[in-house]
Design a protein around this nucleic acid. Sequence first.
DNA 1: CCATTAAGTTGATACTATCGACAAATCCGG
DNA 2: CCGGATTTGTCGATAGTATCAACTTAATGG
Lengths: 222, 222
Amino acid sequence: MDSVDNVNIADYPSTNHLLGMTLDGSAYHHGDLRAALLTEAAAMIDEGGTLSVTMRAIGRRLGVSRSAPYRHFADKSALLVAVAAAGFDRLRDRLEAVGAGAPGAGIDQLRQIGEEYVRFALENPGHYRLMYGKEAITRRDQPELREAANALFDELVRIFRTHQQSGSIKQQDPQVQAYVAWGAVHGVASLLLEEQILTAVDADGLIRQTTATLLDGVRAGR
Amino acid sequence: MDSVDNVNIADYPSTNHLLGMTLDGSAYHHGDLRAALLTEAAAMIDEGGTLSVTMRAIGRRLGVSRSAPYRHFADKSALLVAVAAAGFDRLRDRLEAVGAGAPGAGIDQLRQIGEEYVRFALENPGHYRLMYGKEAITRRDQPELREAANALFDELVRIFRTHQQSGSIKQQDPQVQAYVAWGAVHGVASLLLEEQILTAVDADGLIRQTTATLLDGVRAGR
DNA sequence: CCATTAAGTTGATACTATCGACAAATCCGG
DNA sequence: CCGGATTTGTCGATAGTATCAACTTAATGG
């Protein structure tokens, strides 16, 4: 039993260490296992779906033992929550960057933000899938996750409020407006990610059409 | 090991059968295990997420042995695929019903269909979660699933085409139009389902606002 | 230079998916 | 009506996973 695991090379009576590394390249202390676990987990999800992420496999890929990850995360769910939360943070950063870098605050900024949102999802399918769909996440009400998601949402609300003040979009509850927009971009992103869309369809065109329709719906005036 | 499974009451040298039922209420032949598996799986997802669905647990709940489900589905993924496909079929039926029952073909019909879509998702979270998010589904390209999903999409395209002909909405590629709408309703449904939306927000209002914004975006004229 | 602690490791338990061989019910052609 | 063929279940066994506990190293502060 457990034949695969026993392939572990580290018969760790190997001294000869230097800065945590042994001469044969193996290391007892990984260096920054926690960070490595986060990126590796996301990579594995991208490759083979959430199912393919197992604590043992991830340890194997990083060259540590099967239970080393437990030193950094209470359990598998906690690891995945951390990955998801990191995803929300990164997404928020990207949207903020677009907001900051956009020339003027015309309605075109909204379009850019919407498209950036979908782009992020397509570029980081692993993170994105985990951010929504609590499939792999056990405990309800992960405060870390909820906070990160709320921070993203607050940023969206802020953006819509700003545009309402400049008069480019309809005056209405900015929170609802933000949810509607969030839903729309999340929806397309999700359909594209889950390959629900016929390959013959031009994804970029679809994304543009989504933001365009949405903007037509919120634009001020007629 | 396997202490739980061994609790199985059926020490099946119990004869005394009648129409597949034994006198003590147990039955060797379940009757319609296949159908029971489909509904039970969906129920379990509703309760504890996709993770909580295990072939053993589902058998336990239905009072059959751990491997009885394998008589009806090649593996767990096949069972889940069937649940998802059934979901697409049921959703399509409901949308068709709204389309058929709606008085006239005014743009209001579109609103009703959009709201019915979200309602379905909220009423059948188990099915819905499985329909999107391939997390739990292994093989790519499940023809059964793809067909069911395509049938739903075709129905949407048909609806938009009809409304274009009656002149109530913009003339443009109905396929893209359908995808945009699909994305929007799927997005809100998904956010609501995954509890991504603050509890203080009125869900019904949000749904109405989503369809309203969308319709403003596709309406013909100015 | 040693005691402490952080970071890893192996061993063991309890579950799960799934395969294979076997038993019980049903069904169907004679 | 009856016995084989088929379908539906059952149990035993293998391999892989999460996770806990006890033990080992490495790194670090005094």
